[in-house]
Simulated scan of single mutants.
Amino acid sequence: MEKILVIYIDIDDDLGRIGIKTPVIGESEVSQAIRIAEEKIPTDSDLNTMIVAYNIFKKMRNEGQNVEITFISGSEGSSLESQLQFSKKLDDVIKKVNPSKAIVVYDSPEDAKAIPIIQSRLPIAGIERVLVEQYRGVEETYVLLGRYIKRALSEPRFSRIFLGVPGIILFILGLFSLLNLTAYAGPIIMMVIATALIIRGLGIDDLIESWWENSTIMVIVSIIALISLIAGIVNGYFAFINLKTYNALTEFQVLLSILPYVVFASVVLFGGKAVNKIIAKDIKVWHDIFKIFSTVIIYYIIVVVAKNLEQNSTEVGLQTIYSLSITTLVLISVYILMNIIEKYKFNSTSAPS
């Protein structure tokens, strides 16, 4: 007979906060978990969902089906971390229970992120989403509102938005008031809010958190590079407002005022990648070292070209074009040569002895 596993999903680890360690497997452990939840979170929707999952399990068992039940949680960390933890625990449950199908029970859109994880391991025979009806009375509304506010203040993934962004806005208002720059506060605040929406909407914060866990060096150099780019934009802005005439040459000078910061940001990023590859003993580290040298050389050439344009010298301009052509050919030649050496070394080391 097919063995069906009833899975209650708790992706944000609400059970862990009340002392229930998952995965919880089997009727006795599940009953104990429900009793703890009745004491600790009697009005929470998670308790209702746990009971629904348990009732589905008992009904199927009474019908003579081969069925087992489990409660599986993720973690309180980022969305990606929660899914990774859930995936690991699900694998442990599957090894112990050895089911052939699954019935999924959940109550929130956040929990629904675990469904594709389950589907990648087991055929899903059914999905039950539990929607708990809420009373509309004033008192119940305040209780519900208080619960959500507490969640927004205590859970990291919510507090970053509900506390972090308003905190930054208040800090900007206070700082600009002290500097008598309140006229600029509005646009800056709009940019902060837009940045927060972009970061949260595209999941950039989860990506950065995952990146930090895998490569702390890259996160540090990325922050340095971002600061450098912001400084470059500010420097370019001041160079632009100080222009007395507007033509192609003066606009080129504005770009030159930004360029050193862009070059520094690029060199820092390539350097961070090179350090990572050196630590990992990756032979392809030369790619990033080559990019650093190329960036510096190209920057030097652009600066020379700018000086020649200011002098308006045809002779010097021809020398610059000649130098630029030679440099480009040398860089391309070196890159091709290093690729050949890398492929030769890789083939020689990977060939069977």
Rank of each mutant, 00 (worst) to 15 (best):
S313N: 15
Q253A: 06
A112C: 09
I161G: 00
P166Y: 11
E128T: 09
Q319M: 12
D288L: 13
N247C: 02
S353W: 12
S215L: 12
V97T: 07
S222L: 06
G203E: 10
R147C: 00
G77L: 03
S348M: 10
I118P: 10
A102L: 01
I283P: 04
G201W: 07
G164W: 09
G272R: 03
V263D: 01
G16A: 05
A37N: 04
K343M: 10
E251H: 14
I25N: 00
A351L: 06
D111H: 07
V104W: 01
S100I: 09
T328S: 05
K40Q: 13
L249M: 12
D107T: 01
V263F: 08
P156E: 08
K95L: 12
T328H: 00
I223G: 04
S159D: 03
L5M: 08
P123Y: 07
I189Q: 02
R151T: 11
F158Y: 14
E310D: 14
D282Q: 08
G236W: 02
I224K: 08
V24N: 01
K277Y: 15
I193R: 00
D111M: 01
E251Q: 13
D46A: 09
I340Q: 05
V267K: 02
R157T: 14
G164V: 01
I336S: 04
L255H: 10
L259G: 00
L256V: 08
M218S: 15
S154Q: 07
T43A: 10
V105C: 01
I326K: 03
Q65G: 01
Q119F: 14
I36W: 01
I72W: 02
T182E: 14
L197N: 08
N98W: 05
F290D: 12
F86W: 10
Y135T: 09
V262H: 00
I149M: 03
S348T: 14
L256H: 04
G137W: 12
N312V: 08
N312C: 07
Y322I: 15
A112K: 15
M191Q: 15
